[in-house]
Computed example of a mutant assay.
Amino acid sequence: MQRRAFLQLATGLVASSVLAGYASPLWAGTKEQIGEAKRFRASRRYMQTSFGRIAYVERGSGEAALFLHGFPLNSFQWRGALERLSPYRRCIAPDFLGLGYTEVAPGQSVAPDAQVAMLIALLDALGVGRVDVVGSDSGGAVAQLFITKHPERVRSLLLTNCDTEHESPPAAMKPVIALSHEGKFVDTWLAPWLANKTLARSPQGIGGMCFADPTDPTDEAIDCYFTPLVSSPHRKALVHAYAIALENNPLAGIGAALRQSRVPTRIVWGIDDTIFSFAGAEYLDRTMGRSLGIRRVPNAKLFYPEERPDLIAEEARKLWKTV
């Protein structure tokens, strides 16, 4: 989605009063999907840290893998991958500060550097030393900061479409950041999508922007992602703070540290993404000190890991065999 289209969407939603009458057919979901969401909620845990009460899901045992989600999603993004990979790793998927169900401590920053520090605190509290990191979207930016600040804690890195040094934030985020400065992003985009699932899955919604399947995201996923974010003025402010923290490139100057990294890194990129260009994958491949190459994923947009968990599991298992 180009910046012009994003701006048109924002303007249209603010100006239009027809959203309430926008027909949205009831989507009951399959029994499997509804059961999946219920099981995920039931498995959510919380860890009290100085950063706040961190929500996370953990499955499996043995060596640990850490899954870092995108914006404005939460750990539910990785449900399919966790199911497939928990026989091979202790899979840990937290909700970032400011997103999902994590309860942020008063005055706590939600910027990428703070996210890294929070992850270290969470892993320490869980008794986890080294991890295999899997990152998507802004979670991929946090993953890059994580491996440069704490290389001794990382065995391997799997990156899907995400921020890179020369595309952080991407142009598509600029209207999101502008609306966040005005305190309007949540009410302009997320609240209407939550209220109207058909709109959310339309070309003007998160579905058309970030998912290849027109039936995605499901009603259950939309509820899981956006309900906590619209729940109070405080939560809305945290979402806005998260977006604003991406404005001044958090990856600026990281290239030298990435070149020095000895962490085996695999890049798996959806080539139909309109948010992040394929040039980002090429940058990572030539910059990472130990890149294991790029896999191009056709018919895949930004949040394809949610739609293609088998592919993520396949690539993760191949990568983990190298360490």
Rank of each mutant, 00 (worst) to 15 (best):
R90L: 14
D163K: 02
G60W: 03
S168A: 15
K149M: 13
A172E: 07
L284Y: 07
I222H: 06
R290Q: 15
G29W: 01
S291L: 08
F40N: 04
V128Y: 07
K174V: 11
W269N: 10
S75K: 00
T215G: 04
D124M: 11
M1F: 08
G12N: 01
K38P: 03
E36Q: 12
T274W: 05
M288R: 06
F211N: 11
T49Q: 07
D223S: 05
Y56T: 00
K38Q: 14
L159Q: 09
G183W: 02
G140K: 02
N299D: 15
A15W: 08
H150V: 03
L319D: 13
P203M: 06
S16G: 08
A243M: 10
Q48A: 12
D223M: 01
M173F: 15
R296C: 07
S43H: 05
Q48T: 09
E247P: 05
H150N: 07
A28G: 02
I312M: 12
R39H: 01
I244R: 14
M47V: 06
A141E: 11
G12W: 00
H240W: 00
E32Y: 04
L157G: 07
W27K: 11
E307T: 12
R259H: 10
D187P: 04
L73G: 06
I254H: 14
R262S: 15
A252F: 08
S50D: 13
D132W: 03
H166F: 10
G80T: 02
G100A: 04
R84G: 07
R308G: 05
Y242F: 15
W27V: 14
R259N: 08
Q77A: 09
T274D: 13
Y22C: 12
Q204K: 07
A313P: 09
R266Q: 15
G35C: 04
T102F: 00
Y56M: 06
Q204V: 04
M47E: 11
R44F: 01
G289A: 11
C224Q: 13
V230H: 03
M1E: 11
I294V: 15
S168E: 09
L311W: 02
E247R: 14
D187S: 05
D132T: 12
P72C: 02
I92M: 12
S232I: 00
Y304H: 05
V186M: 02
R201G: 10
S61D: 06
Q8H: 10
I254Y: 11
R259D: 13
K174Q: 15
G100V: 00
V176W: 14
R290C: 14
P106N: 04
E103N: 07
G127W: 00
A65L: 13
L122N: 08
I275P: 03
S50C: 03
G70A: 09
T102Q: 01
P217V: 01
R153N: 04
L157H: 07
A178C: 03
S24F: 01
A241G: 08
Y46P: 07
R3M: 07
V297R: 06
G12S: 11
A241S: 15
R39D: 11
R308L: 15
L199W: 04
I147N: 12
P192A: 01
C210S: 14
K321Y: 01
A111V: 02
Y22G: 05
P233G: 13
P106E: 10
L311K: 09
Q108S: 06
A121K: 01
G135K: 01
A5V: 11
A212I: 01
G70C: 02
S291Y: 08
E83T: 14
P72N: 03
